[in-house]
Simulated scan of single mutants.
Amino acid sequence: MRVVIVGATGNAGTALLRRLRAEPDVEAIGIARRTPADSGPYADMEWHSVDIGREDSLDPLTRIFDGTDAVVNLAWQIQPSHDARRLYRTNVLGSRTVFRAALRAGVGTLVHASSVGVYAPGPKWAYVKETWLRTGVPESSYSRHKALVERMLDEIESDHPTLRVVRLRPGLIFQRDAGTEIGRYFAGPLVPARLLRFGWVPLLPANPGLRLQAVHADDVAEAYLRVLRADVRGAFNIAAGPVLDPAVLAKAFHGLPVPVPGFALEGAAALSWWLRLQPVDRGWVKLALKAPLMCCDRAVEELGWQPRMDAVAALHEVVAGLAERAGQAESPPLNAGGSQPGRLGGLLRGRLPGTGNPY
Rank of each mutant, 00 (worst) to 15 (best):
V107E: 02
A37F: 05
E27G: 12
R308W: 10
A264S: 14
R167T: 07
R63S: 13
G267S: 11
L249T: 11
N73Y: 06
L275M: 13
K251W: 12
A326D: 10
K251D: 15
P123A: 15
P358L: 04
Q306F: 12
H48I: 04
I64D: 00
L110P: 06
E27C: 11
T14G: 07
A113Q: 11
A147R: 02
A235R: 06
V71F: 06
L61W: 09
Y42M: 08
L58S: 10
G350E: 10
L228H: 06
R349C: 09
C295S: 15
S39A: 15
N73R: 01
L352G: 02
L244T: 08
G183L: 11
E130V: 07
I78K: 00
R197V: 12
V280I: 12
A264D: 12
V258G: 08
P170N: 10
G136S: 14
A288T: 02
R34K: 11
L110C: 11
E55Y: 05
R184Q: 13
P358E: 03
I182M: 12
P138Q: 10
K286D: 08
P60S: 09
P189C: 06
N73H: 15
A288Q: 05
H160P: 01
V280Y: 01
G321P: 02
P80T: 03
L344I: 14
P192Y: 05
W273L: 03
V98K: 06
V285S: 07
V312Q: 12
R184D: 07
I182G: 00
E301W: 10
G188P: 02
D38P: 10
R89V: 04
I64P: 00
A313M: 04
I238Q: 11
S49W: 09
Y142G: 00
P292W: 04
P292A: 08
L172G: 08
A299K: 01
D59G: 11
T62G: 07
L303C: 04
A314R: 00
N237L: 10
L303Y: 09
G40N: 10
G106Y: 00
E157W: 01
A193K: 14
P121D: 04
A268W: 09
P353F: 07
V50I: 15
G108L: 04
A206R: 07
V300M: 12
L334E: 12
T131I: 12
L110F: 14
P246S: 11
I78Y: 01
M294K: 07
V191T: 14
R276D: 07
L110Y: 14
L265G: 08
D218V: 11
P307V: 02
L196A: 13
D297S: 15
G94H: 02
V191D: 09
Q328Y: 01
P292F: 04
P333R: 02
I29Y: 04
V227K: 09
N237W: 07
L172S: 11
K146C: 01
P161R: 13
T162D: 15
R211M: 04
I238L: 15
R89Y: 03
Q175A: 06
L228W: 02
